[in-house]
Design a protein around this nucleic acid. Structure first.
Lengths: 143, 143
DNA sequence: CTTGACCTTGCCATCATTGGAAGGCCTATC
DNA sequence: GATAGGCCTTCCAATGATGGCAAGGTCAAG
């Protein structure tokens, strides 16, 4: 199987397969006489593993650890679970952060008429620094 | 006010102030005879505007539009509100995406004993492709 | 033998930010 | 006046994961 077929079969682009090889995430593939990379089913499965891990938001650094555990038949499932838990916590942190951004923006947008007049509490808030929501929107809405 | 003081007053690092100037997001600052950048209160307020917008997740490209509206006294608040709404929608999309990742991982982690044995549904799932959660975790939990 | 689809390497771009190196300026102290 | 240190300047590089492009080699079908 050449790189294009492996890409289709795994869902990882040919570009990224070469990149993963260059960074050492995956071992160097075998080559034909003409220099084409050759992939076995096992290697395609490894690529799918990577693809799925990326889809779950794991950074490549963590995928390296996951792959090592995947290959290690004497692994402890606790180690895998710990990596998953860390990833869950990281995702949760980001979700909370973005939720906070969203809510702040929603308060501001609600306070903005959105008509042809120039007066805009969103711009006022942006111009007044990080605590301005307390000074404007919240008091304005009695929260 | 020189760049270090402006950085402290605005919360934008000196490094980033120079960067924003180089990309044209902010106009070039005045200079002393020795070539030091000089900032007025108005410019510091603009930097705070940028900082606050970044904190709300706006990409620099959108901040450019926001700044233009901020400076335009004949702006329509509808334009500002539209930018805010777009940002809210973008945040919401990312939140949903990360929530889905988190939930998938949580299902997998719940199914993993997390002990010293090597058997691990997380690794099985990662090795089996994007729909494997249906094949394993969900049926395993009868969902 | 040509054509087109595929492969190779290598370099550039993204986006926002940080870091470092090499050198100039300013202020205070000796 | 010399010197130390802290600030400033510019330029260059790297981050992480990915896409894109270009120049050239290879393979398979016609």
């Amino acid at each position: 199987m050449n790189i294009g077929e492996a890409a289709k079969a795994s869902g990882v682009s040919a570009k990224m397969i070469r990149y993963y090889e260059s960074t050492g995430l995956i071992p160097a593939a075998g080559r034909t006489g003409a220099g084409y990379r050759v992939y076995s089913d096992t290697e395609v499965q490894m690529l799918r593993f990577i693809r799925r891990s990326r889809d779950l938001g794991f950074p490549v650094e963590k995928i390296e650890e996951l792959l090592a555990l995947w290959r290690d038949r004497s692994r402890h499932s606790a180690d895998v679970k710990r990596l998953a838990q860390e990833q869950i916590e990281g995702l949760q942190r980001k979700i909370i952060e973005m939720q906070a951004m969203k809510e702040t923006l929603q308060h501001l947008a609600e306070a903005c008429c959105g008509d042809m007049r120039p007066d805009c509490p969103i711009l006022i808030d942006l111009g007044c620094g990080p605590n301005s929501i307390k000074d404007h929107t919240l008091t304005r809405f009695g929260q």
